[in-house]
Amino acid sequence: MAYDYAKFIRPGRLPHIWCPGCGYGIIMKSMLRAIDSTGWSKDEIVLASGIGCASRLPGYVDFNTIHTTHGRSLGFATGIKLANPALKVIAMGGDGDMSAIGGNHFIHACRRNIDITVLVFNNYIYGMTGGQYSPTTPMGAKATTAPYGMIEPSFDIARLAVAAGATFVGRTTSYHAVPMEKLILQALNHKGLSVVEIMAGCPTGYGRRNGQKAASDMLIWEKEHAVPYEKAKNMTEAEMAGKFAIGVIYKDESRPEYVESYDRAVGLSKRG
């Protein structure tokens, strides 16, 4: 039987704003199935987003939701978690939101290892504002603000997260809807800061300027360029050129979580 999403969708909030062929709808569905598997109640879940197409997701789903300012969801999420650590906090945003304007908050949230799950929707482009380049736009790719091709090297968001101190880091794509669900579930259940980078197609802002006219072209591209991490680990840099690893990339359950460390350090034994 097909999965019934109705219990998580806010009545009257659909249709969503996303373009036909946008990868974000697949992410929303995988995320909802993962949340369902946690067994958490809707009342204890908080979704915080920044600004952008990805960041419109919280408005559609029936949790405590906050659509903040561009790049700042992790600041808000940190305050929410510290105020009430019993809440399950999920922050989300696009590649621009999380790694350009919000890059500073992203690395510091990772460093603190606060118990928040961060979903980065990486479509290589600024979708909402119409296709300008982002810190993940591949070299040579076209964007409205890179009409001659992108000349800046890109961020590898998952590696950035590991380097900054996140204790669970994974990557997936909108093609891998079921593995994505399982990866997000692992991230949600991880105690500490978890990051899932999700490659997703933006046919409107990226694909049509970069040889992937149809949404299906983008899904096929994701399938063909994703390499399971266990395999990627043993491949040379040359073999991995243009490709990316998917799956669990890093996991460390030994490092203390931020709010617990705080409470221990200051003598706040009981949480409130």
């Binding site: 510290l82 105020a83 510091h108």
Partner: peptide, 15 residues
């Protein structure tokens, strides 16, 4: 910027 965000978040969560 983050401090202002955190303060608003914490207030929404009841503090």
């Amino acid at each position: 910027i983050a401090a202002m965000a955190a303060v608003i978040g914490a207030s929404l969560a009841g503090r």
